[in-house]
C-alpha cells in the first residue's frame, strides 16, 4: 500500500519534470524555427545593394536604403525625446514625489502605458498631429515611437535611482550642493549604466514597431531625409512587401526581417552582457 502511494507520487513527479522539460523544448524550438527561416529565406538576398538602393518597383532591382535611413531617423528622434522626458519623469518619481497620491497615479498609468497596444498610440498621434495638419510625416512617426519608448525609460530610471544608496544623496547635501546638482552630478552618474540599459531596451522595442507607423509616417517609395514629409520605415516596408504578390518584393521583405531581427537581438544581447557586470552604485 505504502509502496503503491510512493510509486504513484514518483510517477506523477516524473511526468511533471517531463512536462517542464517539454515546455522548454517547445519554446526553444520556436525560437530556433524562426531564426532558421530568417536565415534560409533572408540571408541569400543580403548584399551591398540592399544598403545603397531604395525600394524598387516590382520586377526591378533595388534595396532598402530609404527604409533603413527613415527608420534610423525616426528612432533616433524618438529616443532623444523619450530619454529626456523619461529620465526627468523617472527622477521626479524617485527623488521628488515622496510617494504622494499623485505619484502613485503617475506610476500606475505609466505602467499601463508601458504595455498599451501600440496601434492605439498610432491612432492617438493620427488624431493629435496628422489629422489637424492634413499630412503624414516623419515627425508624427517619431512622436508615436517616443510615446512607446518614454514609459520604458521612466520605469527603468526610477528603478535604478531607487537602488542608489541613501548615503550618496547625503554626501551631496553634506557638500552643500543644491538637490538638482546632487541629482545630476552624483545620482545620474551612479545610475548611468542602468539608465542606458533601459534606453537601449526601449530602442530595441521601438525599432521593430510597425503598427504605430502605419498611419503616422505612412511610408515613402523614394529616398527622403525630410521629416516633414511621409518617410519610409523598415517595418512598414516589410509589411507592405510581405503581403504583396511579387516574389522579388517578398524576398526584400525577408531581407528586411533579417536586418531588423539581427539589430534587435544584437541590442538585447549587448544589454545582457553589459548588465552582467556588477552595476556601479
Amino acid at each position: 500500500m505504502i509502496f503503491d502511494r510512493r510509486g504513484r507520487r514518483s510517477i506523477k513527479a516524473g511526468l511533471f519534470v517531463a512536462f517542464c522539460i517539454g515546455s522548454t523544448a517547445i519554446a526553444l524550438t520556436a525560437l530556433a524555427a524562426i531564426l532558421m527561416s530568417l536565415l534560409v529565406e533572408g540571408i541569400g538576398g543580403l548584399n551591398l545593394q540592399v544598403f545603397t538602393h531604395s525600394t524598387p518597383a516590382p520586377g526591378s532591382e533595388g534595396g532598402l536604403a530609404n527604409a533603413i535611413v527613415g527608420s534610423l531617423m525616426m528612432c533616433a528622434t524618438a529616443m532623444l525625446g523619450a530619454v529626456v522626458v523619461g529620465v526627468l519623469a523617472g527622477t521626479w518619481l524617485a527623488e521628488y514625489s515622496a510617494d504622494s497620491h499623485y505619484a502613485k497615479v503617475v506610476r500606475f498609468m505609466n505602467d499601463v502605458l508601458l504595455s498599451a497596444p501600440s496601434i492605439l498610440i498610432g491612432l492617438f498621434v493620427y488624431e493629435l498631429v496628422v489629422a489637424p495638419t492634413h499630412g503624414f510625416s516623419g515627425w508624427a512617426g517619431a512622436l508615436a515611437l517616443a510615446l512607446l519608448a518614454a514609459p520604458v525609460v521612466t520605469r527603468t530610471t526610477e528603478d535604478v535611482l531607487k537602488l542608489q544608496a541613501r548615503t550618496l544623496r547625503e554626501s551631496g547635501v553634506a557638500l552643500g550642493a543644491p538637490l538638482w546638482t546632487t541629482i545630476r552630478q552624483i545620482l545620474w552618474r551612479a545610475a548611468g549604466g542602468g539608465i542606458i540599459t533601459g534606453a537601449l531596451l526601449a530602442f530595441a522595442r521601438i525599432s521593430g514597431e510597425t503598427a504605430p507607423l502605419l498611419f503616422t509616417s505612412l511610408g515613402n517609395q523614394f529616398f527622403s531625409l525630410d521629416m516633414g514629409q511621409p518617410i519610409a520605415s523598415l517595418p512598414g516596408v516589410i509589411f507592405n512587401f510581405a503581403l504583396s504578390a511579387y516574389d522579388d518584393w517578398r524576398r526584400l521583405a525577408w531581407v528586411g526581417a533579417v536586418l531588423i531581427t539581427a539589430a534587435v537581438l544584437a541590442v538585447n544581447i549587448f544589454v545582457r552582457v553589459l548588465s552582467r557586470e556588477p552595476r556601479r552604485s
Binding site: 522548454t24 519554446a27 526553444l28 520556436a30 525560437l31 524555427a33 524562426i34 527561416s37 530568417l38 529565406e41 530595441a204 525599432s207 521593430g208 514597431e209 510597425t210 503598427a211 517595418p235 516589410i238 509589411f239 510581405a242 503581403l243 517578398r250 521583405a253 525577408w254 526581417a257 531588423i260 531581427t261 534587435v264 537581438l265 538585447n268 544581447i269 545582457r272
Partner: peptide
C-alpha cells in the same frame, strides 16, 4: 543561456512573427 534564449524570443519584433506565421 536558456533564460536568455527565452527572453530573446520576447525581443523578436511582432512583424517578424507575422511573416514567419504567414510564410512558414
Amino acid at each position: 543561456p536558456i533564460g536568455v534564449a527565452v527572453e530573446l524570443l520576447a525581443g523578436i519584433p511582432s512583424i517578424v512573427y507575422g511573416m514567419w506565421g504567414l510564410f512558414v
